[in-house]
């Protein structure tokens, strides 16, 4: 399982590095969305608003949906699915590999957007640094849940536009916990309690993905 996971993660990251979709399409979209959020708050409220963490995670959600669809689309190119299926890869390893690659991509995006939040939304730099561990774990949990639900919407005949609808119940607790944790790091509060929720969600989605990814692929 671990060998297949590294193999699939390496392949996905190499494709991403080669195609530069993340660099030239996803990141600019995220930065522009963040900039528009700052403009929507206005110059008076941007520095004082408590909306910064929520806006960060809202933009991250949009970006994550794009990247999840992209991750699954790699496997669904005409002919690729059938040929790769005959390699007989361990589905648990495939899930872990795709989730790992998506996690790395979301971490890169998240770091850029956190920097953008400091610049555009004027969130505290120190508070943002304190929030970094919780943000990284939240993004990893989003990647695990997203890989699972991405296979559900793209593995069969389900349209990819279903992804936002289907992932909402899975993503909502993660986004709430992530936002609360980020806010606690910025403004004080129960940082670790929210952080634990995200860690538990990460473990749960990873376990479910390992168990069910093969079933979703078959369906």
């Amino acid at each position: 399982m671990t060998r297949v996971a590294w193999l699939v993660a390496g392949k996905d990251l190499r494709i991403e590095a080669r195609s530069r979709v993340l660099l030239w399409q996803v990141l600019p979209f995220g930065v522009i969305a963040l900039l528009l959020s700052g403009l929507a708050l206005g110059p008076t409220h941007a520095g004082n608003s408590t909306a910064g963490p929520g806006l960060f995670y809202l933009v991250t959600l949009f970006v994550a949906l794009l990247m999840i669809n992209r991750s699954q689309a790699l496997e669904n190119a005409p002919g690729t699915r059938a040929s790769v299926a005959t390699l007989g890869l361990d589905p648990a390893g495939v899930f872990l590999g795709k989730a790992l690659a998506l996690t790395v991509e979301l971490w890169i995006t998240g770091l850029v957007l956190l920097g953008g939040s400091v610049l555009v939304l004027h969130t505290s730099l120190i508070g943002t640094v304190h929030a970094l561990p919780s943000v990284l774990v939240t993004l990893a949990a989003l990647a695990a849940a997203g890989t699972l639900y991405g296979a559900l919407t793209q593995g069969g005949d389900g349209p990819a536009t279903l992804l936002p609808v289907l992932t909402l119940p899975a993503f909502a607790p993660l986004l709430i916990a992530g936002e609360r944790s980020y806010s606690a790091a910025l403004h004080g509060g129960a940082l670790w309690e929210w952080w634990v929720i995200v860690v538990v969600a990460l473990v749960a989605y990873t376990a479910v993905g390992i168990l069910l990814y093969g079933v979703l692929e078959e369906s």
């Binding site: 494709i15 195609s19 190119a77 005409p78 690729t80 059938a82 040929s83 299926a85 005959t86």
Partner: peptide, 16 residues
């Protein structure tokens, strides 16, 4: 699937 080799008419690979 591990015992068969498949060559489809659409192509079989990761384009990038």
């Amino acid at each position: 699937r591990r015992r068969v080799g498949w060559l489809g008419h659409e192509g079989s690979f990761y384009a990038d």
